[in-house]
Write a protein that binds this DNA or RNA. Structure first.
Lengths: 195, 195
DNA sequence: GTCTATACCCCGATAGAC
DNA sequence: GTCTATCGGGGTATAGAC
C-alpha cells in the first residue's frame, strides 16, 4: 500500500466524482457539503479545489458527462423496423438507467441547481436524447406500425415511465433485470398502440 | 387594509406553507433557508418559529397534508367496470398533478430529506395511493379487460409516467389540460393491454 | 498533491422586548 | 404576533507550508 504520488494523483480525480455522484444522488446537491465529499474520498477539503474550481462546476461536470455518455452509448439504425428500434431503445434505457442509477437520478433531480448557462448546455443534450426516441415514434407512425396520439408528449411520457425504474430498483429484488426490461417493453409497445 | 392582529394571524400560517411549498419545489428543501421563506411571507425569521417547531416539521407537514389531500380527493367504485375506473384514475391523477404541481413535485423529490419516522409515515400514505391503482389493475385482469404482465410494476410505471406531467406542463402551452388527459389516457389504456 | 489554518458568510434556532 | 439581536455551528473557498 505504498502511497506513491503518481498513483494517488491518477485516482483522486475520478474518486471525487464517484463519491460526489453517490452523495448527491442520495442526499441532494444542496444538502451535501464539500467537507462530506472530502471525507468520503479520504482527503481534506482544500484538496478538492486542486481538482475543481467550485461545487457548481462539480455538479455540472457530473451531469454533462453523464448525458455525453448516454448519447455516446445509444446507437440507432434509421433503416430498421421502427418497432424493433423502439424495443432496442426501451431495453437500452432500462439497462443504462440501472447501470448508472445514481447519474440518471441526479440528472433529472438536480437540473434546477445548475446555473443558467450550465442548465442550457445540459438541457440541450437532454433534448437530443429525447429527439432520438421521438424520431422512432414518428417513423413508426409513418410506417403505420404505431399510433401514438402525440409523438412529442408520448416521448416525454415514455422516458418518465422508464426512468422511474431508478426510484425502486434494487439489486436482488423480486424481478431481475431481464424480466423488468421485458415488462417495460410490453408497457411501451402497448402505449404506442403496437400491441 | 387595516392590519388587525386577528386577520394577520389567520393568514400567516397558511402563507408560510404556501411560500415554503413554492420555494421548496423550485430550489429544493436543503437549498431554501428559513430567512428566504420569511422574506417571501413578509415577516422576520423569528416569527416563523411561532408557527412551527423547526424546518423539518414544515417539510413533513407539507408532504403529509398533500398525501392526505390526494387520498381524500380520490374515490373509487370497486363495482364499476375496471377500464372505466382506470380512465377515472388517469384523468384524476393528471388533473390533481396539474392543480397541485408544486406539492406533487415536492412529494416525490424530497422524501429523502425526511427524518426516518416522517418518511415512514408519508411513505405509508403513498403506498395506499399506489394500492388504489393496483387494485384496479388486478380487477381488470380478473375480468379479462386488461393484460398487464405485472400489476405491481405496472402501477409504479403508470404513476411515474403520469406524474411526469409536472416536469413540463405550463399553463397556456401547446396542449390544454383536456387534450393532455386524453393523450395520457390513450397511453395508459394501451400500456395495460386494453387498446 | 495534500495538508493545516482560516477568512468570511449564512445557517437554524432561541431569548426577550414590545 | 412580530420584532430585533444573537448564539453556536457549519458552509464554501482560499492561502501558504510541506
Amino acid at each position: 500500500m505504498a502511497r506513491t504520488t503518481g498513483s494517488r494523483a491518477t485516482i483522486t480525480g475520478p474518486l471525487i466524482r464517484d463519491k460526489a455522484r453517490c452523495l448527491f444522488a442520495r442526499q441532494g446537491y444542496a444538502a451535501v457539503s464539500m467537507r462530506q465529499i472530502a471525507a468520503a474520498v479520504g482527503v481534506q477539503v482544500g484538496t478538492l479545489y486542486a481538482y475543481l474550481p467550485d461545487k457548481q462546476a462539480l455538479l455540472a461536470d457530473l451531469l454533462e458527462s453523464h448525458m455525453q455518455d448516454l448519447l455516446a452509448a445509444w446507437s440507432d439504425d434509421p433503416q430498421a423496423d421502427p418497432l424493433a428500434r423502439l424495443e432496442r431503445f426501451v431495453r437500452f434505457h432500462i439497462d443504462f438507467s440501472i447501470d448508472h442509477a445514481d447519474a440518471v437520478f441526479l440528472s433529472y433531480m438536480e437540473l434546477r441547481n445548475l446555473t443558467p448557462d450550465n442548465f442550457a448546455r445540459i438541457a440541450a443534450l437532454r433534448g437530443r436524447y429525447e429527439s432520438a426516441l421521438e424520431s422512432i415514434l414518428r417513423d413508426g407512425i409513418a410506417s403505420g406500425t404505431m399510433r401514438p396520439e402525440d409523438p412529442k408528449l408520448t416521448t416525454l411520457a415514455l422516458i418518465a415511465m422508464l426512468t422511474g425504474v431508478t426510484n425502486w430498483y434494487r439489486e436482488g429484488g423480486r424481478l431481475d433485470r431481464a424480466r423488468i426490461a421485458q415488462i417495460y417493453w410490453g408497457l411501451a409497445r402497448g402505449a404506442v398502440g403496437a400491441a
